[in-house]
Nucleic acid binder design. Structure first.
Lengths: 265, 265
DNA sequence: GTTTTTTGTGATTAATCGGGTGACAATACT
DNA sequence: AGTATTGTCACCCGATTAATCACAAAAAAC
């Protein structure tokens, strides 16, 4: 009827606040207060459906985060900071922790990441896969072969490719339609474009990558019900590294063979 | 002896990962794996002291976040992404949620924040107070009077003042020593500087703000044991808004009186 | 000034979640 | 074959959070 839809801004806001680590009560209290601007425990309880007696705890929590100010009167009144300021507060907090994390990890990680030989690894989720691909692109010295369905050829990926091209890496890109090809020639003029190497199976289309002939990744898109906090597990990928790596060997064979066929036509 | 110090990078990394919402096991597992680069459940369990049987759950959690890739062999092997990439992953995730939160709050917040009349509000914690002050600075049209102990005159605050000055707001700044005054004249030449209006009580020194003669804030620093997630509750402040607001009335009286005395000397 | 309502605090219970341990079948090693 | 390792499950415990209630202090109404 009135508030059962999932695209209700109130619901969305609560969801996000909880993601940032607030308790459910605190989140709902803040949202209520934000739409009131100012209010007493009773008023908040009425619009948020948080038990009145627990509004006080919720407010304490919010006050500790600096999201709510308190007026010491009776009845107490509460005041929510602006949406703008909420963003800034979390940003602050986030940067703080991100920096500490980064330096801590740097301090303990004396590992060469570019060395694996045996083994095929799996990654799930579109964002995680994209991240991994970008990482490979950054390490590319010589050549990138990349084949993808168009929906997955995002701005991010294009930037990664362009950056590599600027470093002098040769780009071979396939699987995109004519209109998109034109656009790419514009952004990365150095890139070689080729038609799909084979008929991309319609249903499970994904992407296919080879860097410097030694690192390869293949992904397929799947329909999966289970959604996780970080990733909408809709794509799944495997990758391998090193000259003798089995996945690398196979894909290199295919790519080399088909690419020669295509580019020499 | 070996690992009981709080500045151990491993400990710090675990702490931060937990802040981002990972379980303790997942955090310790990741740190162990990060320093190994690659490893089996057993190896991880040995260096992280996570029960071996629980390493698998932890890895699942990390895999969902896209922080760890899995090799489907027996024994399974796990692979941690680089420190650099961890940062990027969380950044992504964070921006996602921050944006959703911001738009959701904007969608429901039709509140004029510049309107309160009665009431004196309290804020605790240096960061929260600074945030509030910057908010006031941004809304300033005419004049900012700001008096502070030097430790609290941060870069942020100076930027806020400079931005206001650029908008044509007149700045009156007090309570800082000669060397710092020189620096300020450099950054904000338009600012009027004045000596402390009165002897700033040594112990409970803090800050004192008035914007456009209608918004005021006073803070004092306190020694408090209770530290909160967001803020090291070391400073506490009250603020009020509106012409008839009691705090405003009092501070305006003081400021006007003393400022005239000082600036006309 | 007394009654009645409202307000703030604290205690209590139930449910959920993460930490910790062990049983056990499947798998690899000898 | 027999032994050791590995991965999955199920269980228990303690901490946290949601949810309700009891009650004293404070306002408001009479």
């Amino acid at each position: 009827m009135s508030t059962d839809q999932t695209d209700d801004p109130r619901f969305a806001a609560v969801e996000q606040l909880e993601w940032f680590g607030l308790s459910g009560y605190a989140a709902r209290t803040f949202v209520a207060l934000a739409s009131l601007g100012t209010g007493t425990a009773r008023a908040i309880s009425e619009v948020s459906e948080v038990p009145r007696t627990r509004v006080y705890d919720a407010i304490d929590e919010l006050h500790d985060w600096g999201l709510v100010d308190i007026q010491q009167s009776s009845p107490k009144e509460f005041w929510a900071i602006s949406a703008e300021t909420v963003g800034r507060t979390f940003e602050h907090e986030f940067q703080q922790h991100a920096n500490r994390l980064r330096t801590a990890l740097d301090d303990l990680e004396p590992v060469d990441h570019r060395a694996e030989q045996r083994g095929v690894w799996t990654v799930d989720g579109e964002t995680a896969i994209t991240t991994r691909i970008l990482e490979f692109f950054e390490g590319a010295d010589d050549e990138i072969v990349y084949m993808t369905v168009e929906e997955l050829l995002t701005e991010e990926i294009l930037e990664g490719l362009a950056a590599a091209a600027d470093r002098g890496v040769s780009i071979k890109l396939g699987g995109v339609s004519q209109p998109v090809q034109d656009r790419i020639q514009d952004v990365i003029p150095e890139a070689t474009l080729f038609e799909s190497l084979w008929v991309w199976s319609e249903t499970a289309a994904g992407r296919l990558m080879m860097v410097d002939g030694t690192q390869t990744l293949v992904s397929a898109r799947v329909t999966d019900a289970a959604a996780t906090p970080a990733s909408p597990r809709s794509e799944t990928a495997i990758w391998g590294m090193g000259n003798s790596n089995s996945l690398v060997v196979i894909l290199r064979a295919i790519f080399t063979w088909r690419l020669e066929a295509v580019t020499s036509e």
